[in-house]
Design a protein around this nucleic acid. Structure first.
Ligand code: MG
Length: 621
DNA sequence: TCTGGGGTCCTAGTACGA
DNA sequence: TCTGTCGTACTAGGACCC
């Protein structure tokens, strides 16, 4: 706790939703909800307009729809948020080199370390200037908290929301915090809050009065101590600029529970591959592989296996995950699967082998021996276990080399438990692939003059009466999923890489829903050119596109082989809607545009938006 | 139509070697 | 050398955050 309120906490207001509103002028002032659009999605961010309906983060999407049926529902676009975040962080680094990002939209800044403020007056001025700069560069608003400690700065920014600044003058924290709920303290969630309530403590003052011993007795050592300190206003954690990630993980919740073991195995393999992709993308390797399974009843378990050394080999991770899976009972169904890697390092044991081998080769020793001995010696390899000499030194023979588990599994690196790992990814759960081609209910081409589908709207909004045509509601229709039979034909072509049954969830529940949802639009055919025989691509609600003649816009809805685009962009007036065939050659995906036109700080090339988000709209698990 | 995905940190039990 | 103790790894689960 320093004497001057020079620790700043920035928190962007309703970040994802606000970014979408800035990118899509027709959504400004309207309730916008960003989150998963599948049947098991939850709300990531609700705009303030949507919050008035009672919608908030982490709420199941289904519930949000009941509360705000006419809101715009959009899938998150992390490439956009990352780009905006980078602009904001750059502004923060202008204030001080000591910037500690907590997430895409939050960070601490040590103003004193940057020399940009040394007292309350200077801190407030810097904070207000920062808010103006953020708005000028990104078009978005952020809230600022200033205090003498991290905790208080964070509480202050919370109080400042939205679009405000709050400064807590050192010395006033006890009286300010005292009457407030324990829930305002970072680290006090529902469980701890309830725990404390049962013990008769509801306010921060109650915690301070209870004393450290009592809190430790109640909540355990670390939590109790830290809570007591916070309640007293003690907090001297420094702002630290850079922190390496400690784990990398990937998980998927399936639209429908998985029952087929073969399918479960296949999904675990795919998750392992994706996990390693990300691991390698970050230039890291890891030593402990973790499998996560959430069952039909939401009970969750993890199983982990620690290897002899860090790896970034997809085969090693995949096989470890597969072994872990074999020990899990999945009868009843699986709702979620995840694969993660922890114990990260910047090198792999394979690296060390190679390096040692090279050195050994120089000494002109027989190659194989050299490799094996080097591997065992493993200069700098994380100890096999606690004891220095212990299990380690004798085991040069461990056949699998890197990736052989430390513990019990008597693996020789070749035998595959259950003989299943190598099984070909047979078709999944019996969703027969429909015949490809131009069959079925797909509407035939109409004259290629484009009709205005929705017509200009007063005020340009999607206000409308919210009829079947309410574009935003339509935005989710067919999104990344099979629709009626006709659409299914088209979509299966688009997923060819996955194989016959595609990456779709089991069963037919989704189909029924989708078919019903799209039925109303079946008659309205879009009029535009179509590609000769190409695969119909999939369009995600909210993604940016560019049309050869109509310019920039975003996908408002898609389904039945058609895609509805609203033509507008960050600087523009609210735009109008047009509908095209999904395979219209004049329509192509594009990267997000800067929210304020002409910003030099906008990343020249954005991280691949398509692979990150869409990835598998269709394969959405 | 109930409950995401990416993380962090902590606790507790067990095993093991010194 | 035996035994109790201690530190460290490993594993599993849970709370919390955005
Ligand atoms: Mg925020």
């Amino acid at each position: 706790m320093r004497a001057a309120p020079t620790i700043l906490h920035l928190d962007m207001d309703a970040f994802f939703a606000a970014a979408e509103q800035a990118a899509k002028p027709s959504l400004r002032g309207k309730p916008v909800i960003v989150g998963g659009l599948g049947p098991r999605g939850v709300v990531a961010t609700a705009s303030y307009e949507a919050r008035r309906f009672g919608v908030h983060s982490a709420m199941p999407m289904a519930q949000a729809r009941r509360l705000a049926p006419n809101a715009a529902y959009l899938v998150p676009r992390f490439s956009l948020y990352r780009a905006v975040s980078e602009q904001v962080m750059e502004l923060l680094r202008g204030l001080s080199p000591l910037v500690e990002p907590l997430s895409l939209d939050e960070a601490f800044v040590d103003l004193e370390a940057g020399g940009s403020a040394h007292d309350a007056v200077g801190a407030r001025a810097a904070g207000e200037q920062l808010r103006r700069d953020i708005h000028a560069v990104t078009g978005l608003t952020g809230s600022v908290g200033l205090a003498g400690s991290k905790m208080l700065a964070k509480i202050a920014s919370e109080e400042a929301k939205p679009d405000g600044l709050v400064l807590i003058e050192p010395g006033t924290e006890r009286e300010l915090l005292g009457p407030k709920s324990v829930r305002i303290l970072p680290g006090v969630g529902p469980a701890t809050g309830e725990h404390l309530r049962r013990a008769g403590m509801t306010t921060v003052a109650d915690l301070a009065a209870a004393g450290e011993d009592e809190l430790v007795r109640l909540l355990g050592r670390a939590h109790g101590e830290s809570l007591y300190r916070m309640a007293m206003g003690y907090d001297d954690r420094p702002v630290v600029a850079e922190r390496d990630a400690k784990s990398v993980s990937v998980e998927d919740t399936f639209d429908v529970d998985l029952h087929d073991r073969v399918r479960v195995r296949m999904e675990v393999e795919r998750l392992a591959e994706r996990c390693v992709q990300r691991l390698r993308g970050a230039g890291r390797s890891g030593r402990t592989v973790v499998l996560k399974v959430r069952r039909y009843d939401f009970s969750t378990l993890t199983r982990s296996e620690t290897l002899r050394g860090p790896t970034d080999d997809p085969v090693v991770v995949r096989e470890a995950a597969a072994r872990l899976l074999e020990a899990v009972d999945t009868t009843g169904g699986v709702r979620l699967l995840g694969v993660g890697v922890t114990g990260l390092a910047d090198y792999t044991q394979e690296d060390l082998f190679a390096q040692a081998a090279a050195e050994a080769a120089e000494r002109a020793v027989g190659e194989r021996d050299a490799v094996e001995r080097a591997g065992a010696a493993g200069a700098g390899v994380p100890a096999a276990h606690s004891g220095a000499g212990g299990t380690g030194s004798g085991e040069s023979g461990a056949v699998g080399g890197p990736g052989v588990p430390v513990g019990p599994p008597e693996v020789d690196g070749r035998a595959r438990p259950g003989g299943s790992a190598g099984a070909p990814p047979r078709q999944g759960d019996g969703v027969a692939a429909p015949p490809a081609g131009e069959s079925g209910g797909r509407p035939e081409a109409a004259p290629p003059d484009l009709r205005d589908h929705a017509g200009p709207r007063p005020g340009g909004g999607l206000g409308g009466a919210g009829g079947a045509d309410d574009g935003v509601v339509a935005a989710e229709i067919g999104l990344g999923d099979h629709g009626g039979p006709g659409v299914q034909a088209a979509s299966s072509a688009g997923e060819g890489r996955v194989g016959p049954a595609g990456g779709r969830p089991v069963s037919t529940a989704g189909e029924a829903g989708e078919a019903g949802g799209t039925a109303g639009r079946a008659g309205a055919g879009p009029d535009s050119a179509r590609m000769a025989g190409g695969e119909a691509r999939r369009w995600s609600a909210g993604e940016d596109v560019r049309h050869a003649r109509y310019g920039a816009g975003w996908v408002q809805g898609s389904g039945l082989g058609r895609v509805t685009v609203r033509f507008e962009e960050p600087g523009s007036a609210p735009g109008r809607v047009r509908t095209f065939w999904a395979d219209d050659p004049e329509l192509e995906p594009s990267d997000p545009l800067p929210l304020v036109p002409g910003q030099s700080s906008w990343p020249a090339s954005l991280p691949k938006s398509r692979s990150v988000e869409g990835g598998g709209g269709s394969a959405r698990p």
